[in-house]
Write a protein that binds this DNA or RNA. Structure first.
Lengths: 229, 229
DNA sequence: GTCTATATAATGATAGAC
DNA sequence: GTCTATCATTATATAGAC
C-alpha cells in the first residue's frame, strides 16, 4: 500500500481529499481574499462545505493549513533568489512559474490582508535583503550603511508597500497578480534605479543635521561622509 | 430661521442628525474598517440602524458621504504641506491635530482597504510630490530626474506603501494611527535620508545599462550622464 | 423623523443519514 | 468519509407604528 504523502504536489487529480481541498483553498483565497466563503472553496474542490470542516476543523484551521503549506513551498523552493537585488524576489520567482501562480496570489493576499504568514514572510524578506546588501557591500557595489538592518527593512517595506499600493488602487476585476508584478517592474525600474544610483538630495545638509542630533543607532558607522568625523 | 449648514463642524453636540451620523461613521469606519456593521455606527451616533439607512439610502451611500466629507476637510485644510518634503505630509498634518484624528484614521482605513477615495487621495499626493520635487529642483536642493512624474509616483508609492505594510504587520488591537505615523517616522528617517542623500549603488553601471536599452520615457532627459548621448 | 419588528440573504458550523 | 439538511448568527435593508 502506497502511503502517498507528497505534500508539495500540485497535480490535483490524484491527490487525497484533504490535499485537494487545501489546493483549492490556496487558489480561491488567493483569487478572492480570505473573506471568501467556505462554499466557494468547496465548489472549487468538488466537495461539500461540511467536508472541509470535517477535515480542517474550521475555516481558521483551513487557513492555517494553507499558510503552512505555502511557507513550506517557499522555503523548499528557495534557490539563489539572493543575487537578483530586489526584495520582492520571492514573489517574482513564484509568479514566474505557472506552477506556482496560485501560491504567488496567496502570498499577495496574505500580505494584503495581514496575518501570521504575512509577518513571517516579511521578516523572511528583510533577512534576505540584509544578506544581499551585505554581500553587495562586501563586493563593493553597494554603499555601506550606518544602520544596515534599518536600511534593509526600509527597502523591503518600500518594495512590498509599492505592491500593496498598486493592489489597492487597481480595480479588483482587473487585478491579476502576474500582470501586476510585471507592471510594477516596468513603471518603477527607472525611478528606483535612478534614485538608488544618484540619490535625491544634492547635498548632505539634512542628513548631517539628523546625524548630529542622534547618537547613531547601534551599528558601527562605516564611513561618515563629511560631518561627525 | 438659521439654515445651519456648517458641514465641516466636528463638534457633534449641536449637529443635526445626518451630520452626527456621518461624524460617527467617520470615527467608526476609521477605527474598525469598512467591514463594520451599521449597528455599531448607529450605537456610536445614538440612533437606530434604520435611521442611518433613511438618511443615506444605504451603507454605500453613507460611505460616499464620508468620503466626500473627508476629501473636503483635506482640501479646505490644505495649507503649506508642500515644503515639508514628504509624501505622507497630508496624513501627518491630520494626525497632528487632535481635532482631525478621526479623519486621519479614516484616510488610513481608505488607503488600507481601497476604494475611490484612496485613488483620489493617492493622485493628490503624487501631484503634491511632483510640485514639491519640482520646486526643490528649481531651488537646487533636489536632483533633476529623467522622468519626474515617474519619480514622484515611485516616492509616493514607497511612502504610502511603507505605512500600509506597517499597518498590516501590526496586531489590530495595538494599532493606533497616531502612534503608527510617529513610529514610522522614527524608524525610517535615518535609512530614508541616508538612501536619498547618498544613494545605494556605488556606481552607475546598472542604470547606464537600463538607459542604453530604453528610449527614455517621454519627458526631456535633463542631463544624460554617460550613455544615450 | 425615529423607532421596533421583520424580510432576506449569507456566513461558519453541526447533526445525522448513508 | 461524504453528503443533505439545518442551526445560530450576522449582515443590509424594508415596513409600518407612533
Amino acid at each position: 500500500m502506497v502511503t502517498m504523502r507528497s505534500p508539495l504536489s500540485l497535480d490535483e487529480d490524484d491527490l487525497h481529499t484533504a490535499a485537494r481541498i487545501r489546493a483549492a483553498a490556496v487558489r480561491v483565497f488567493g483569487a478572492s481574499g480570505f473573506g471568501v466563503g467556505l462554499r466557494a472553496i468547496a465548489a472549487d474542490a468538488g466537495v461539500s462545505a461540511a467536508s472541509i470542516v470535517k477535515h480542517f476543523g474550521s475555516k481558521a484551521g483551513l487557513r492555517e493549513a494553507c499558510d503552512e503549506f505555502v511557507l513550506r513551498v517557499i522555503r523548499e523552493g528557495k534557490r539563489e533568489t539572493v543575487g537578483t537585488g530586489d526584495v520582492t524576489a520571492i514573489l517574482r520567482e513564484l509568479a514566474a512559474s505557472e506552477r506556482y501562480e496560485d501560491v504567488a496570489r496567496y502570498v499577495v493576499a496574505s500580505l494584503s490582508e495581514g496575518g501570521s504568514l504575512a509577518r513571517t514572510l516579511f521578516e523572511h524578506m528583510v533577512a534576505d535583503a540584509v544578506e544581499y546588501l551585505e554581500a553587495g557591500v562586501a563586493a563593493g557595489v553597494i554603499r555601506p550603511s550606518r544602520d544596515p538592518a534599518a536600511r534593509a527593512r526600509f527597502l523591503t517595506q518600500a518594495g512590498v508597500g509599492a505592491l500593496l499600493v498598486e493592489i489597492r488602487l487597481t480595480p479588483p476585476e482587473e487585478l491579476d497578480m502576474v500582470d501586476l508584478v510585471r507592471h510594477l517592474e516596468r513603471t518603477t525600474m527607472l525611478p528606483a534605479l535612478e534614485l538608488y544610483t544618484e540619490g535625491l538630495f544634492t547635498d548632505s545638509r539634512i542628513l548631517d543635521a539628523l546625524l548630529a542630533e542622534t547618537p547613531v543607532p547601534h551599528d558601527v558607522a562605516p564611513d561618515p561622509p563629511a560631518a561627525a568625523g
